[in-house]
């Protein structure tokens, strides 16, 4: 018998604390697989956010830091500038990156820092109990929008990938999801491209992963992926918004 699937080396043995079905675990594993494949485990430094994935430092068997809320790209900038040989990535949710950390992400992207940002967008604040996020869909019920999000008072969902793609400096901006096995493999390819570009010193790469939050959406995990496909993907369209070096074609 030959082993065809096993836990990647860059993932620690610690069980995830995430809710049953949460996409964080899948994305963690894909990042760990990419780190293994690119053979960068010894020089990778991650930056954990505030949010459900705040404990990401326990789950990756690489060096890690944990930034104040939303400031992960700023901390990553500092790490990369003093240790330019290291591979630095941040792992942030939508409450972290698209709300309190909007300034940090926009300016890190605009400076073209040679870091990789993994953005998990599930349209809700997870850890704090399901409040409305900037990415919450119109009409979506949350703890702080019990009648559904109303555009006249709360605005429309922010599309971070499109916004970042308008800047000159980023080299790779893409939106992917893990709602089925085919898209899951595309997500892995996108993460591989992003880390490879950084390894080659090309510049800022941004991977948005449209994800689920079964607990705060009040749905079963499999139903959540269906809901994501029907409701989130029309608003957050999948695709690559910027690919200056043409890595997806090569």
């Amino acid at each position: 018998m030959k082993q065809v699937f096993s836990r990647p080396q860059s993932l620690s043995k610690k069980p995830f604390h995430y809710c049953p079905g949460c996409d964080h675990g899948v994305v963690h594993r894909l990042i760990a697989e990419v780190i293994d494949e690119l053979e960068i485990k010894d020089r990778t430094i991650g930056v954990a956010p505030v949010g459900c994935s705040v404990f990401a430092y326990d789950y990756f068997d690489v060096d890690f830091n944990q930034a104040p809320h939303g400031r992960a790209p700023a901390v990553a900038t500092g790490i990369k500038r003093v240790r330019p040989e290291s591979i630095v990535f941040t792992y942030q949710g939508d409450g972290d990156l698209a709300a309190i950390g909007t300034a940090e992400i926009i300016h890190s992207a605009n400076r073209g820092e040679n870091i990789t940002v993994v953005f998990i967008n599930n349209a809700i604040y997870g850890m704090t109990g399901g409040q409305m996020a900037p990415t919450t869909l119109i009409g979506m019920k949350t703890q702080t929008s019990p009648y559904g999000r109303d555009a006249s008072t709360a605005g429309n969902p922010i599309r971070m990938s499109e916004m970042i793609a308008t800047l000159e400096s980023p080299v790779y901006v893409t939106r992917v999801t893990v709602n089925n096995p085919a898209n899951l493999m595309k997500t892995k390819k996108a993460l591989y491209n992003a880390f490879k570009l950084q390894k080659e010193g090309k510049g800022f790469s941004f991977v948005e992963v449209v994800s689920i939050c079964p607990t705060n959406w009040g749905k079963k995990p499999a139903d959540s992926h269906k809901w994501l496909t029907e409701n989130m993907l029309p608003v957050f369209k999948l695709g690559t918004f910027k690919d200056i070096h043409g890595v997806e074609k090569s």
Binding site: M1, K2, V4, F5, L11, P20, V26, R29
Partner: peptide, 18 residues
Amino acid sequence: AICARSCPDVAIEIFKEE
């Protein structure tokens, strides 16, 4: 290995007959 790749908790290992 679709089950193993989809597992959010990396709980499944897959072996194949050689």
